[in-house]
Design a protein around this nucleic acid. Structure first.
Lengths: 347, 347
DNA sequence: ATGAAAGCGCTAACAA
DNA sequence: TTGTTAGCGCTTTCAT
């Protein structure tokens, strides 16, 4: 079991000062070719690598990003997490992960723990903003960006899809297809994503002179989505909605199960279903769910870009509110307006 | 933006020495009630929290666990990741995550980076062991445990499900149901999970006097699984397999899509499909996949337990090879043997 | 029980 | 370009 090897040991072996070793491992420091050579040789011989923690202490930069994630069971998040982690790794940062889920206690405690690690920045992915954690970070001087959540408070950077516009698109699509009993199954009311999707949806419905035909709340939880669907369809067959916008795919897939396998209805012949996110499962042929795509790649890129901007230019960097437009991916879970054809399916 | 507050500042405000402050925040140190009170008061007033990194430097314990994960698109992993992270958080550790995916370069580089953070331990989740990373950690004196992978090398702790026994169960189930043309779609050959599942499956088939009727390789990738399925069924209808064991659910679900929607065959009337893992999607009614359950909770508990054991008793702790038996979850994607009934489905 | 002092492994002035 | 020196914020002897 090799013992921990320090820069001092390398220095001694190489016959130089300890700071010379430090310089060799500091990009852009001034070292002569000769010294560099000697040091590198000694370093590899001993298997030396700089201690990131020690470096962090003195430099004040840990190159650690705290990532707080609420749910991993909505399949949008594993995808996003993977991309975030990869992108940050490429930039020389690493991700310290914090689950803000059920088991973990108070989110505020989690935040304190994060800050204890002297993270250079924090990404909050779909974290309920009940108590304003983000503000707490700002106070500590740690840059934050909200991923897939927005906040009315100014001065906080957030990256989302354009949920309002997405909601509108779904309503317009339903109306173009001639639907007349259009319903909505909502996500968790505390989420800006939920509120914006609903607002856009209702607005476009209103523009067409329609009103919401039925409304239930699923809270972004599959089980509650099932219950919501059962309540919504527990009426005489002719009084059932003929089109339902479900606030995310995660719920929409569960709703499709209820409709097809419990109620024995056909999709889209009896009822059209549209979701939101375009998670991989939405493209699975047994569901083939029409949905609004959240462009995860773009969202991640914007998130990382904004965060690094704040880290590197603490004074200058202005808060951004990014909302990325996403296309309606037309599959077969919703009736097509005249003249539309399903887009090529991801195989 | 509150500046960083140090133990020294707290000490001054409280009128005690800096070490007194340290003691207050060190569980089990000897401090008088009075001092503790004064210190805590000053600390909350200033919003002081100990700097974990500084503590790590002097104590040599970072309370960081490096977690290397390969795929997050196999839904077994997000689940496991969430549980691992939660459990470790409860034990006062935090997870530094490393994606060993396609984009990230060499895994060995990733390992070096991990060790640079002076992690107290490492969990390798489904990481290809091509170059023996685990050994590399051992050398550095960092405890490792392999999650959902095993290694023949002694002295390395691993936690898996009992893949061999799982493979056997599937074969026995097919045979009990009277299948006579039994096929297998394999995962990535470098994975011990794949090899063990196949070995158990073949062995039980052999015990019943049968041989594998068809064999293709899907490498644990959905796209390759689809190709494998197409190749496997590209024969005269009467020559097609009547039962297929697919090495994990992730692939099995894709295979079901090919069989039902491309080939127009019925499941389980024309062909039985069984998977492995019991990911959440396997229970979705549009698939309702019969599968071997990996007991994620148990696997995680064992993993954390073993890792902490190694961390806390570096000398004593013996390497463990844990293989957790998992039940066959009988749903409707495979023909039932006489007298069997489907188990209650997770709703 | 408490304070003083040493030092974890490193970077960053400052001299030379 | 290089070495010397002073810390980063904390824990931990060692005295008292």
């Amino acid at each position: 079991m090799a013992e921990k090897v320090t820069s001092l040991q390398v220095a001694q072996l190489a016959g130089v000062s300890q700071s010379a070793v430090s310089r060799v491992f500091t990009p852009g420091a001034s070292v002569s070719k000769k010294t560099e050579e000697k040091v590198r040789k000694a370093a590899t011989e001993l298997g030396y690598r700089p201690n990131v923690l020690a470096r962090a202490m003195v430099s004040g930069k840990s190159r650690i990003i705290g990532l707080v994630v609420a749910y991993l069971d909505n399949y949008f998040y594993p995808e996003a997490l993977e991309k975030l982690s990869n992108e940050l790794q490429e930039q020389g940062y690493h991700v310290l992960i914090f689950m803000a889920s059920r088991t973990a206690g108070n989110i505020d405690d989690v935040m304190e723990e994060i800050l204890d690690y002297q993270v250079d920045g924090v990404i909050l992915a779909s974290v309920p903003m009940s108590s304003d954690i983000a503000t707490r970070c700002q106070q500590a001087g740690v840059p934050v960006v909200l991923f897939n959540r927005s906040q009315d408070i100014d001065g906080i950077t957030s990256v989302t899809s354009d949920n309002y516009s997405g909601g509108r698109k779904v309503a317009e699509f339903f109306i173009a297809a001639g639907h007349g009993r259009i319903a909505y199954i909502a996500g968790w009311q505390g989420a800006s994503t939920q509120r914006d999707r609903e607002a856009g949806f209702r607005a476009a419905l209103g523009d067409a002179g329609q009103d919401l035909y039925a409304y239930e709340i699923g809270e972004f939880l599959t089980e509650n989505a099932r219950l919501a669907a059962r309540r919504m369809f527990d009426v005489a067959p002719e009084d059932r909605p003929d089109a339902v916008f479900v606030a995310n795919d995660h719920m929409a897939l569960a709703v499709m199960d209820v409709i097809r396998f419990e109620l024995g209805m056909r999709i889209p012949e009896d009822v059209s279903i549209v979701g939101y996110d375009d998670v991989p499962q939405a493209g699975w042929l047994a569901y083939n769910l029409t949905t609004i795509r959240q462009r995860a790649n773009l969202m991640v890129a914007e998130t990382v870009d904004a965060l690094l901007d704040h880290i590197e230019n603490p004074a200058v960097a202005a808060a951004r509110k990014v909302a990325i437009d996403g296309p309606l991916i037309v599959r077969t879970s919703a009736r097509l307006p005249k003249g539309w054809t399903p887009q090529r399916m991801k195989t």
